[in-house]
Structures are given as C-alpha cells and as structure tokens.
Design a protein around this nucleic acid. Structure first.
Lengths: 93, 93
DNA sequence: AAATACAGTTTATATTATAAACCGATTTAT
DNA sequence: ATAAATCGGTTTATAATATAAACTGTATTT
C-alpha cells in the first residue's frame, strides 16, 4: 500500500487540482464557486498548493478588480497522476 | 463534485476498509502489519469505523491470547462503494 | 520473581481543515 | 459627499483529525 500524498489527500485541494487538470486556467472566484468552499478556506488551501509547487497563482487586474489566476504546474500534474495511481491500489480499480 | 465521506477519506481507515473489502475477515495484528501503522493509531481508527457501523471488531481468544477479528458490514461495503464513485469524479476515471 | 513480549487502549500532542473576522478597494444608495 | 454594501481576497482563531507515546493487563521466558 503506497503512501497517499497528504497534500493531495484533502477534499478541497484535490477538487482544485482536479479542476486545474482539465482547464488550462481558473481564477479564484471560479474555483470558489465550483468547489463550493468559503473564500478563507480556499485561500489557505491554494497557498499550500502554491508552496508545494503544484500550482501557480498570479494576481492581476481585470479593469479595476483584482483577479487571481491559477494554473497547474508540471510538478503538480505529475503529483496528481501519482496520487491517482496510488489510490487505485486502495480502491481496487 | 460530490462530498467525500470524511470517515473514509483518511489514509489508514481507507486502507483498513480496502483490505476488509477483499478479505472475509482480518485480525488486529494482520491489519497492523498490512497497513504498517502503530497499534495506537490503528486502535483509534478501528473504533471510528466500528462506531460508524462500517465494520465489526470482535474480541475473542486464540488459546490464551486475545484476538480482535474485524469484518466489514453491509453498510460499510455500501459506503466504500459510494466513496469510490464519488472519488472517480475527482480523479477523472 | 523479575524482565520481556504480546495485544491492545488511553491520553497527550502535533497537524489539518475550516470558518469567522478582518482588510483595502470599488461601487451603490442616500 | 458620505455612509453602506460588495467584491476579492488574507489573516487568525477554533474545531476536528491523525498520530504516537505512554500505559494496562495477561502470558511467557530467563
């Protein structure tokens, strides 16, 4: 039984990574809506993913509003794929 | 994105459930070896699964040694299957 | 009979997740 | 013009969780 990357083994962070695996980029507001999370929780979990090097979060502007755009990194993609492989061992897939 | 049953979304509890899905019964010592967990941690997590009605843990004797035998319940089996389905939504399977 | 080991349980601690409270800027209402 | 609400977040406090260390009782070995 392989280790499950604790950074990915969290509902919210996994949801974020799952979205970013399939969507070239996604902003904070979109991730918040899709994951149905609170802003605070999302902010904290995004930070952890950024710190792990799994995603990037770039703050910019659209008109006068701030906008944080997230993208998955190559490292993040790899970690996600390894996590899926590890999980399969548990789920019998 | 479906909720992930928090009782199953824990590495050790998931490992235990995974084993019990495939093995008519398993005792404490076996689960401890297979999951490479400490006795204390395993004891706590088994309790939670018992309390949730996902497994049974029956204490008996083999000769003079105590032996705790665990089995998955119908409810546990169903919860596990639902968890797998929910996860698939995240993993893209 | 003292020490060691076995099969766990209880309790204390470290980590994690989560939401509440906050912040600065902008827009809306009065 | 200014007070009040809104947007897009961040920081911080708290609740929940996981984990291991310390303990218990019985049995075996020395």
């Amino acid at each position: 039984m392989k280790e499950l990357d604790p950074l990915l083994h969290s509902q919210l962070r996994l949801a974020v990574m799952s979205i970013l695996m399939n969507v070239d980029e996604a902003d904070f507001v979109y991730l918040k809506e899709k994951t149905e999370s609170t802003a605070g929780n999302l902010s904290v979990q995004l930070d952890k993913l950024v710190n792990a090097g799994y995603i990037t979060a770039d703050k910019g502007f659209v008109g006068k509003k701030t906008r944080t755009v997230c993208r998955i990194t190559e490292q993040g993609r790899k970690a996600f794929e390894e996590y899926v492989e590890a999980l399969k061992g548990y789920l019998g897939l």
